[in-house]
Structure formats: C-alpha cells, structure tokens
C-alpha cells in the first residue's frame, strides 16, 4: 500500500515556526510499524528528520509521539491500526505540553523533574534480614502494585493530560504512577512522605479524572485508577489504613 506521512517539522537552526512536511512511501506493509515508516522517510528521503527511538518494540519508551491525534509509541502502532485500503494517511507530531526542540523531539527535562520530585525510589531504613536473605513479601502484597511497576517513563500519559497542558507545574500522571508504585509496596517506609507530596497544590488533586492518560498508556497501566487510589489513600490518611483493609479483602478473595 501507499502511505502519506504528514509530519510536523521544526528545525530550530533554520525555521521560525513549525510546518507540515509531506512524504509519500510506496510498498508499505499493513503490519509495518509507524517507526519503520519514519525511518524510511529519514533514510530514503530526508536525513534531517529527527526523532528519538531505541528498542523498537515498545519497551524503552523513547518514541512517544502524537500519531493521528493520539499519543502512541511509534514502534507499537501498526499501519493497519490507522487505516485500510491502498492509501493511508498518517499524521505525526510531537507530544503536547513539552517544548519542541527539533521535529518530533521534545524537552523531557520538565517531565523527569516531576518524576524526581515524588521520591521515585525504594526507602526502607530497617536493617536487612539477619540471615542475609531477601525481605519477605506475600504474592498478594506484590500484586498490589504490579500494574504501576510497568511504567517505562515514555510520557505518553502526562502529555495527553489536559490538566498538564493547562499548567506544566502539575506533577502529572506518570509521576503519580511512580509514587503509587512505592506507596503501595508494603516493604517501603516512605509512603507518608510521598502522600504529603501528592497532597500539595500541584499534586494529585489537579487530576480531573479525564482518563486520557489511561487510553494513552502503551503499557496498559490503569493510570486513572492508580491516581484514584492515591487520592483515596490521602483521604484515608495514609497507606497504612488502606493496606490493612485491602490486605484483608485480598486475602479473603484469594481464598
């Protein structure tokens, strides 16, 4: 099939403002990845086209971009998901809400700053077990935060969030997902500190439950649900309480 790629271009060394470039590709297979098409444009037609990519199978999180109006990883969306027939049009632009540096590349620093602000690391100041072995954790307790361990920091969620577009100071869904991953890990001891960060004006209450983040997540993380659980933990006054009840429920459920 033939595909017309409409790509948002901007070279800070030459262009005063962004413009649309159009590139036609022949002999495209329906199961080609959009990333392959971007490579074909870059390699066969215009080497100045710039975008980030690495693993090319949806794990490294480099190639988040807006494809036909929706945030996606270019390596995880196939042409056949965007159109059928002899001719398909695909529009590609940088993610919104972060400054465009060149073509499809945005400034990720504000994103990672928000990430770093939520204590995205394991804290446990107790001595490690005396037998020199692992800390114990039940399979149910491990499952409690499984969903949010999947995050690859691609920024597809945060840059699809209208609250983040409105005000970049909002910590954003990805950072909340990271906070959730540790708040609900029963081995971790800094949940209260993280909940304090989440309670701040630029924290979790900026979320208006729009669900864009959940639809955008290429790892199928239930982002809005995770944000809701953090809100709930704040309301209940900490993860201690929530874990006790949920632990009981889960234990019952597991039978």
């Amino acid at each position: 099939m033939q595909v017309t790629m409409r790509i948002r271009r901007f070279n800070p060394e030459k262009d005063k403002k962004p413009y649309w470039g159009e590139y036609t590709l022949d002999n495209v297979e329906p199961n080609d990845r959009v990333l392959e098409l971007l490579h074909r444009v870059k390699w066969e037609q215009d080497g100045t086209l710039s975008f980030r990519r690495s693993c090319a199978h949806g794990v490294c999180g480099s190639d988040g971009m807006r494809i036909n109006g929706v945030n996606r990883l270019a390596c995880k969306v196939l042409v056949n998901a965007l159109g059928e027939g002899d001719h398909v049009k695909i529009q590609v632009e940088p993610m919104l809400g972060l400054q465009v540096l060149k073509d499809l590349i945005v400034d990720m620093e504000p994103f990672f700053e928000h990430y770093r602000s939520v204590m995205p690391y394991f804290v446990n100041n107790d001595p490690v077990p005396a037998d020199g072995r692992e800390r114990l954790q039940s399979a149910a307790a491990r499952a409690r935060f499984d969903d949010t361990t999947k995050c690859i920091l691609c920024a597809c969620c945060t840059t699809s969030c209208p609250s983040f577009w409105a005000d970049g100071k909002y910590v954003g869904p990805a950072a909340i997902v990271q906070a959730h991953r540790f708040i609900f890990d029963d081995r971790d001891q800094a949940a209260d500190e993280r909940l304090k960060i989440m309670r701040e004006p630029d924290g979790v209450w900026r979320c208006r439950t729009i669900f864009n983040c959940t639809s955008a997540c290429p790892r199928d993380i239930e982002v809005t649900r995770a944000i809701g659980e953090v809100k709930m933990a704040i309301r209940r006054g900490g993860r201690g309480a929530i874990q006790e009840t949920e632990g009981t429920e889960e234990a019952g459920g597991e039978g």
């Binding site: 980030r52 690495s54 693993c55 199978h57 794990v59 490294c60 999180g61 480099s62 990720m108 990672f112 690859i152 920091l153």
Partner: peptide, 9 residues
C-alpha cells in the same frame, strides 16, 4: 536517557 537502555528489554 538511562531508562531507555536495552537492559530494560
């Protein structure tokens, strides 16, 4: 960015 490294795969 370090989290893009191939260890992650």
């Amino acid at each position: 960015y370090p989290t893009r490294s191939h260890t992650g795969t």
